[in-house]
Nucleic acid binder design. Structure first.
Length: 105
DNA sequence: CTATTGACGACAT
DNA sequence: CATGTCGCCAATA
């Protein structure tokens, strides 16, 4: 079924995000770049915010380019908890070993 | 059409 | 390191 109330852009963002393996993270910028809109990192964040997609899409694995958590529709605290649960350590609002677990498309 | 708003990024001060 | 400003893009009013 479709019942997609999402735009092509939002769809693309979610699809790409689903490709991120567990235990790794990506960035808004990289994600935007992967869908062909290298300067649309803000729009990417906007798309994720509007789509409280459940576990279908690991929205929590998207962080800022400098390794900081960024934001989350359910609250940053929640985002951090989800990340830790997924084996990703977060310290002082920033992903530990960010450079090592950073997933590039 | 224009204006406003953001889970951003890079740079200047 | 902290704060401010500008640029960028898509969605929405």
């Amino acid at each position: 079924m479709r019942t997609i109330s999402l735009t092509e852009f939002e769809e693309a963002v979610l699809e790409m995000l689903k490709q991120v393996p567990a235990g790794q993270v990506t960035t808004y910028s990289e994600l935007a770049r992967a869908i062909g809109r290298p300067r649309a990192m803000r729009a990417v964040g906007n798309a994720l915010n509007k789509n409280p997609n459940a576990p279908k899409v690991p929205c929590q694995r998207v962080v800022k380019s400098d390794g900081y958590i960024g934001g989350f529709a359910g609250g940053v605290k929640k985002k951090i908890e989800l990340l830790r649960r997924g084996g990703i350590e977060v310290k002082n609002g920033k992903v530990v070993n960010f450079n090592e677990i950073f997933y590039q498309f």
